[in-house]
Amino acid sequence: MERKYKLLIADDDNHIRTTFKDYFTKQNFIVETASDGIEGLEKLRADEFDVAIVDMKMPKMNGIDMINEALKSDETDANMIIISTPHESNKGDVIKALNIGVNAWFEKSELEMPQLLKRVTELAQVIPPEMVKRITSMIQN
């Protein structure tokens, strides 16, 4: 039996959330959504996700801050992808995102779903280093 990967989509655009959820559900993912950065952070803290697709600009908390909060406290093992429009980000944002551990960045205007699916699947199949450490420490005890 093939394992279903769990995906979080955090975006304030209802059309994007719905489109992505429908697409990834058809690709055999378990999908949850969040409509702002605070809700996305709460879901990352409350549940385990393999990958999170996070919009750069959202109400209440932007995508980089949401990811930073989740990753800095070791509350999630999810691999992170940021999506944005060209006017929402700059070179400094990209550098900050890479430094905090974002695994990929896609521009919404150039986004092709098969390309996003490929990257999400690749990331979902990776075992995060934090999980490897936890498993190894449990085995050693």
Rank of each mutant, 00 (worst) to 15 (best):
K60V: 03
A124C: 08
K60D: 07
L117G: 01
R119W: 03
M58V: 10
I83F: 13
E107T: 05
Y23S: 09
D12Q: 05
H15D: 15
D11A: 10
K96D: 02
P59Y: 06
M113R: 07
Y23P: 05
I95D: 07
L8N: 05
S73Q: 05
R45M: 06
P86C: 11
F29P: 01
P86G: 11
M80L: 01
P128A: 12
M66R: 10
L111A: 08
M66F: 09
E32M: 09
I95K: 15
E48G: 04
A78V: 11
N90F: 08
V51R: 03
K43Y: 00
I16Y: 12
A70E: 02
H15K: 13
T76D: 13
L44I: 08
A46L: 04
Q27T: 00
D77K: 10
D22M: 09
R17N: 15
K60S: 06
L116C: 04
M61R: 08
K21S: 15
M61V: 03
Q140D: 14
A97R: 07
I82R: 12
E42G: 02
N99Q: 15
I95Q: 14
A104W: 11
S73T: 06
K118G: 01
E122W: 01
L117S: 04
Q125S: 13
D74C: 09
F106K: 12
K60Y: 06
G40K: 06
P59W: 09
A70Y: 09
D93A: 12
V31G: 00
D13S: 07
K133N: 08
D22C: 02
F106Q: 08
I81R: 04
F49A: 01
D65N: 12
I127P: 03
A124L: 12
S84L: 06
L117D: 03
E110T: 15
K6R: 12
S84A: 13
L7N: 03
E107A: 03
D22G: 07
A78W: 10
N28G: 00
M113P: 00
N62C: 12
S89I: 13
N62L: 08
V132L: 15
M1C: 04
Y23Q: 12
S73F: 06
E69W: 02
S35K: 13
M56Q: 15
R119V: 15
K60R: 02
D74E: 07
T18F: 02
L111Y: 09
